[in-house]
C-alpha cells in the first residue's frame, strides 16, 4: 500500500503556473505532461537546435496537437513563451531556453500563465532555474537491470505549495498511465540469490 503522495496525481502540474524541469530525461517528463493535457501544445526550441521530435516515437494523440516554434534568438524565445502562455487557446507550453532564466523572466512567465490559465514547463540546466517557478523537477532515465520496464527517476526538488518527493516510475509512452515502481532493492529482494548474469540480456 502506497501513501497518497506516491500516487500518480503527484505528477499533475498546477495550471496557471510555470514549472521547471532539468536533467537528461526532461523530455520524457514533458511528453508525459503532454499526454495529460488535452488541448493545444506548444514546444518552443531555438532554431539552431538540431534535435527534433520524431512523431513515430511520441505517445498517441500528441504529435497532431503539437506546434513547434523555432525563434531565431533568445529574446524572441522568451517573448514567444510569454505570448503563448498568455493565450487562453493554449494548454501546455514546453520550452527550452538556452540561457539561465532570470527572476524577471520567470516572474513574467508566471504572470502570463496566470493570465491565460495555461501551464508552462521550462527546461533549465542544473542550478539555472528561476525562483518564480511553482515546482522544479529533476528527471533522469533509469536502467532496469533485471526486468523489462522503461524506468524513470523523477524527483520533485522544489515545490512552493506542498512537499517534495522522489519517485521511480515506469512509463514507455504506450499508455496514459504511469506505474509507480518500488525501489530496486525491494523489488528484487527475493531474487537476490539468483545469478544476475543469467537474467541479463544482450550484453
Amino acid at each position: 500500500m502506497q501513501p497518497d503522495h506516491l500516487q500518480p496525481s503527484a505528477f499533475t502540474l498546477a495550471t496557471a503556473r510555470m514549472h521547471e524541469v532539468m536533467g537528461t530525461g526532461w523530455y520524457s517528463f514533458a511528453l508525459y505532461q503532454a499526454t495529460k493535457h488535452n488541448g493545444t501544445l506548444f514546444w518552443i526550441a531555438p532554431e539552431k537546435s538540431n534535435q527534433t521530435l520524431l512523431p513515430d516515437g511520441l505517445p498517441r494523440n500528441v504529435a497532431h496537437r503539437l506546434h513547434l516554434i523555432r525563434p531565431k534568438n533568445e529574446r524572441d524565445l522568451l517573448w514567444s513563451i510569454e505570448e503563448t502562455l498568455r493565450s487562453s487557446a493554449v494548454d501546455l507550453v514546453i520550452a527550452e531556453p538556452q540561457k539561465p532564466l532570470s527572476l524577471t523572466a520567470g516572474r513574467r512567465m508566471q504572470l502570463a500563465a496566470e493570465k491565460g490559465q495555461t501551464t508552462g514547463l521550462i527546461f533549465v540546466r542544473e542550478g539555472q532555474g528561476s525562483n518564480a517557478c511553482e515546482t522544479r523537477w529533476k528527471c533522469h532515465p533509469l536502467a532496469d537491470q533485471y526486468g523489462n520496464l522503461t524506468l524513470h527517476h523523477w524527483q520533485l526538488i522544489r515545490n512552493k505549495r506542498g512537499i517534495i518527493g522522489d519517485w521511480t516510475v515506469s512509463w514507455n509512452g504506450e499508455t496514459d498511465t504511469i506505474n509507480m515502481v518500488p525501489s530496486a532493492r525491494q523489488r528484487y529482494r527475493t531474487q537476490e540469490t539468483t545469478d544476475h548474469r543469467a537474467v541479463r540480456a544482450g550484453s
Binding site: 523530455y27 520524431l54 511520441l58 505517445p59 498517441r60 514507455n172 504506450e174
Partner: peptide, 14 residues
C-alpha cells in the same frame, strides 16, 4: 493520425 507509439522509434532524433 491515430497511429500508436512505435516503441522501437526514439522520441528525439538528431
Amino acid at each position: 493520425s491515430e497511429a500508436h507509439i512505435n516503441t522501437q522509434r526514439p522520441a528525439i532524433i538528431f
